[in-house]
Design a protein around this nucleic acid. Structure first.
Lengths: 190, 190, 190, 190
DNA sequence: AATGAATGAGTGTTCATTCAT
DNA sequence: GATGAATGAACACTCATTCAT
């Protein structure tokens, strides 16, 4: 018997990400995804009930993967600034190295495919970031603003910068990244 | 393609923005747009050659409108920080008050509808911002980083914050806005 | 403006009946129906929400039409046997002249298309037949059996005979019909 | 196509009959049949070349089985009326006890699956019935009508009555059956 | 100009059939 | 032989676009 091939799921995910980057969520069809993943249309429906479910599943995977990356090398016992920089760098690295995933995630939020449930579930993955920022505030190392405001300030600037660097075909050198972090830090430090 | 009724065009634009906010670019049809705009499907094609052109036209309109807002009350002869804050506030206000337009513009960048030409043309609308930042650098009032880096830093944090405020149903009070600007300014100031 | 064309609905019905007679309910596709009706596939969906609804609508029409035929020239005040024969002949005539409709109705009862609601609604069309049979029983003109049993006895023999005549390519002459009625009558008469 | 396991074939037949009763010929898929028969899809194709062949084979089986039942306890040397009643009762019993088979056979006649050859072959199974009716005519015990007409008269009333009893959830008692036979007999007797 | 019915290529999805294990 | 994953043609249905009125 031919067992179910998990590699296929991965092929489908990769194909979808590639296509969404190239033409946006609005521009992709199940046929294209299958072709790009080198499988038949029907096979797609063995692994995914329908288009909506495929997009939701991939969204979940990307959100999980990104959360995993964010907290790599991060130890809560680190000094605050070291911890923050670790996560900050992870965040930037994820968006640079997994640019397609980042784009996909962004596109999904305003799409008819992602359900509220999926959004809700994946939101919870980022709670440790909240704790960190709150610890920083308690230690009076950063401004005493709303936690979410501080986070969106940082995340927003990273997102936009990575996107711009990508489309302007400009490499983000170590030096530039250091300067970016400094801007972020200067912006939020107490 | 020389239509009489400007009001109809406006209805179409408004309908499109409403629908894109609700379901994303991926989820709208010409029929829906027509219905939402209270006109017949055929009428849509009197005013717009096809869907792509309609999206491009609206994209252009939004980009122009946003540029116009950005530089409201801005006089190049202003002191640097005053000028910067004026534009910064305009930028934020645009994204808050014309939230639908902001969303639409974001979605368009990764869509199969917008042509490179359209993107290119609309990019030029924001050149005065570049000049301002460069002047600031010359006066050593802000960090001597790449101009685009400084701009995306500011724009990114605004975009993300407004989006979050909207979806979390949180009002951006005068006070919060002042604090946000301070974070931005602290981040870029020399 | 082009108004909705009721003639199209009729074309679709006729096409469907022709195809169902030829290949059975199991063998027809929406594309075929459209082609047979000389309209585009999409047009079908202007007039009918989906395949199920189209089949249900046609079922309803056929049942109504058949009921209308059944009671043609029938007046409740007729002598019992005259009334019964009138209806009996109408029933037979309907199944002969609208053979396609009769086949279609039969097929529908065991199909995944017809809803219970539709079956229920159309059942009520034949209530006058019940009254007639019951009157006959009261007058002791026919056997005092269960009304439904008497009716299915008559209807069943008509259905089967017409079907056989059709497929054996045998014409049901006036004479044969008279003899059939006599068999029915002899079967039920008191 | 020379399969070992007769039990599997039987499972397939039973599964098919069950499904056809529930959803009609139009509504069943090979996958469903396999699942209902507790075998794999591929296994179906070891025992049957394709769907058409499976349906044809089952049709043949059902027709044979029904013919066998029809003539149970029937001996040509019986007095005419006894012989007729024997077969008549067998016929009714078959349709009551093997209701699913009866439904299946009915559905098949108007389906794209059954070939003319299959129809032709199975028709011959019922020739003894013709002989019996013809003998009855010769003995002037029944009306001198066309043999087929007499047979369809009887068969039609049985079919319809059984169907109605089934769907109206009404049991056909010994008494009712006796009365039905009497109606039939009164209808055809000389 | 305005309408919305009509079109048919194109979508998502299913399903009879094949095939690798 | 048995399995069920894989296939792709075919299906139900949609939708950008055209056209008759």
């Amino acid at each position: 018997m031919k067992p179910r091939d998990d590699k296929k799921i991965d092929q489908v995910y990769k194909a979808t990400l590639r296509l969404v980057k190239a033409k946006g969520l609005a521009g992709i069809t199940m046929n294209e995804i299958a072709k790009e993943a080198n499988i038949a249309t029907g096979t797609l429906y063995i692994y995914f009930k329908n288009k909506k479910q495929l997009i939701n599943a991939l969204f979940m995977v990307c959100r999980n993967r990104s959360a995993a990356v964010y907290f790599k090398n991060y130890v809560p016992s680190m000094p605050f600034k070291t911890g923050l920089k670790t996560i900050w760098l992870n965040l930037l690295n994820y968006r640079v190295k997994k640019f397609e995933e980042a784009i996909f995630i962004d596109q999904c939020f305003h799409s008819p495919f992602i359900t509220e449930t999926t959004k809700e579930i994946t939101r919870k993955l980022f709670l440790p970031l909240f704790s960190l920022v709150e610890a920083g505030k308690k230690q009076k190392l950063i401004k005493n603003e709303d936690t979410m405001l501080l986070l969106t300030f940082m995340a927003g600037s990273i997102n936009e910068t990575v996107k711009h660097a990508y489309y302007a075909n400009r490499k983000l050198t170590k030096q530039v990244i250091e300067q970016m972090f400094m801007m972020c830090w200067d912006g939020i430090k107490a």
